[in-house]
């Protein structure tokens, strides 16, 4: 990795670039929120940020530290109840992009934020659970996932399906009647994975500058396949980096972001 930016900064910038102006994005706190706010402060000024606390069209000038940070309500176009966010805005398919993190992801884009190891009633590790994610993953027109890549987090099969990606492969979403298209892109600290159209298996389609296929394979718990047209992404621009760092500085330091 270059000394000029960190792997986390590259991941956040790559995720922000996926968001288009004039779309509505359902944002989870942590890495997704950082990337969405970076997009709004750079190439997508009219990106509509929707937080599950009921803030529609929030325009924070620093990174919110929680999903219910006061700055989200102060700057929102509308503040609505939690039932309304889920029932009127998310469920009918009014939101373009769902932006999720997770603790485990598998080769078909299913996400686990519930338990790891053991069984459900007696888990080795108890994670926070679902929050808004299952319905975000089901009902947004598309889903973007952002997660640091390691053999422990990118696994053959998640221990618990908290948020449905493509199940066991092609056709599962359609069979279940899920309306959204599912995870279209997974951004990691090493590169970008996308579902292969025929099988829905996640394959490596892009590397961040400085990252290698060998690193990506070593950081994946399944036999990671590489797209024929694998490309290398653009490094962060000076302005992307300065805006990202200013957002973080205004927040008062780097906070950990382990929640979904």
């Amino acid at each position: 990795m270059s000394a000029e930016w960190t792997a986390d900064e590259m991941m956040t910038v790559a995720a922000a670039r996926q968001l288009r102006d004039d779309t509505a994005c359902f944002v989870g706190i942590g890495l997704p929120s950082t990337a969405a706010n970076l997009a709004r402060a750079t190439h997508a000024p009219r990106l509509v940020l929707i937080y599950e606390s009921g803030c529609l069209g929030a325009k924070p000038d620093r990174l919110p530290l929680s999903i219910g940070d006061g700055i989200l309500a102060d700057t929102a176009d509308a503040v609505v109840s939690v039932p309304e966010v889920f029932n009127y805005w998310l469920q009918p398919g009014n939101i373009d992009v769902g932006f999720l993190g997770g603790a485990q992801l598998d080769r078909y884009g299913n996400i686990n934020t519930t338990t790891i190891g053991g069984d459900y009633r007696d888990p080795k590790v108890r994670l926070p659970g679902a929050g808004g994610a299952p319905e975000i993953a089901a009902s947004c027109r598309e889903v973007i996932v952002i997660m640091r890549q390691s053999p422990r987090t990118f696994v053959e099969r998640v221990d618990f399906v908290t948020s449905f990606g493509y199940g066991t492969g092609s056709g599962d979403r359609e069979r279940l009647g899920l309306r959204g298209a599912g995870p279209q892109v997974v951004i990691t600290d090493l590169g970008i994975l996308r579902p292969e159209p025929s099988s829905r298996e996640l394959v490596l389609t892009e590397l961040h500058p400085g990252a290698t296929v060998e690193q990506a394979r070593a950081a994946t718990g399944w036999q990671l396949r590489v797209a024929d047209d694998l490309r290398t992404g653009e490094p962060p621009t000076g302005s992307e980096l300065s805006v990202l760092r200013a957002l973080k500085a205004a927040t008062g330091g780097n906070r950990s972001a382990s929640n979904a």
Binding site: F86, Q91, P134, E135, A138, T162, F164, R173, L176
Partner: peptide
Amino acid sequence: LRGYTGTDL
């Protein structure tokens, strides 16, 4: 609701 579909919950 339209919810929980496909999940282990």
